[in-house]
Design a protein around this nucleic acid. Structure first.
Lengths: 207, 207
DNA sequence: GTCTATAGAGTGATAGAC
DNA sequence: GTCTATCACTCTATAGAC
């Protein structure tokens, strides 16, 4: 991909992050790069192509994060993944705003998102089950509850940025981890609490 | 307020719920009512006035729900409030989409939302503390964790609809309650579990 | 109160010169 | 590859007849 093309996507993502892609005009992108709208048209057929490429790029990042899942995902491994998710959220907040706009007007991109969310949920489920089998998480959680918990975790990852934005609060890592970990902490066994305290940097007291 | 004016708001809300207020044209509202756009202009100065009135109306509903908070909010009382929140979410989903759009372009309406969310969070905190003092919720939760938990509950109420919409799932009451209750169940004491099982209709097994 | 007609301000896409 | 100019379209707001 040509350098200008790259720069266009980069500028577009930057603006999408701030205003949502619906509110970004081709003119805005052109201004940001000090090029003309006509030049934009040379590199991308239309606005949709720009949006699609931006989503493609974020998709690649997400795939990387989801691909880093290991066979033995202990608590520290989960915590690392949360770091990765947080970095992603900070870098591509636009992926989490205008979600329903994407669903309505770019069904293909929405399908991709759905796939990502399913994968994310399945990973959370596997993590929970694996850590149950290790005696790290309580066994009282049944299948249905594990699915529900994994679902809640996905919801938190997906909407945490917007939730912070409403409150005019920053996307800081600690706050993100607290939101996520609080949902898991009460299910830790004694052994689980030990592992958590040993490996995870403090921020939230173990319950 | 005149009957036509009421009908306009009603139609507007109906369309906002489906497409988000940004995507609803004055023409759409007029078509829905089989009146002209010019007539719309007679009743409302501009589109913003329609949006503002729609939000005003939802605000009144929210105020009612938040106002039903009682001095002794046991688990059953919380469960009733969840019923009310769910009904609200089903009736006014538009309140939960385009949130950032409102923030950008209608700061005044956004301030109202922020106030509501603060009140909701404070109520959740009070509920948690009250039920701790009753021996229904474990005392291990400290101030910071209570605040975090209340915050997570608000996030769930705010984004549950959108979360369901992404998955093409319906806004059914049971699913909503499961999402919320799962965050509280692990903190129930023995006594708390008894009260939960006694009063709350099953759906999620007590942990 | 309700209508038609139109002004006026974008916005995306395209043609064609350099 | 990059630019200017312009077209075609959408949407809100307004004027004025009935």
């Amino acid at each position: 991909m040509s350098q200008t093309k790259e720069r266009i996507i980069s500028a577009a993502i930057h603006l999408f992050n701030e205003q949502g892609f619906v509110n970004v005009r081709l003119q805005n992108i052109a201004d940001e790069l000090k090029i003309s709208v006509g030049n934009l048209a040379y590199h991308f057929k239309n606005k949709e192509a720009i949006v699609a490429r931006a989503y493609e790029k974020t998709g690649e990042e997400l795939r990387t994060i989801l691909g880093s899942y290991r066979a033995s995902p202990d608590l520290r491994d989960l915590d690392s993944q949360l770091d990765a998710y947080h970095q992603f959220i900070k870098q591509y907040p636009f992926y989490f705003i205008d979600i329903l706009e994407i669903k309505r007007n770019h069904p293909h991109l929405h399908e991709d998102r759905k796939e990502f969310i399913v994968k994310m949920r399945v990973q959370f489920e596997k993590r929970i089950e694996y850590n149950q089998s290790r005696g790290i998480l309580k066994m009282e959680l049944d299948k249905q509850q594990i699915a529900q918990l994994a679902d809640n975790l996905c919801t938190m990852v997906t909407f945490w940025h917007t939730s912070q934005a409403i409150k005019d609060e920053f996307d800081d890592l600690c706050s993100f981890k607290c939101s996520v970990w609080l949902q898991l902490l009460p299910f830790l066994t004694i052994k689980g609490k030990e592992e958590y305290e040993r490996f995870i940097e403090p921020g939230l007291t173990v319950i």
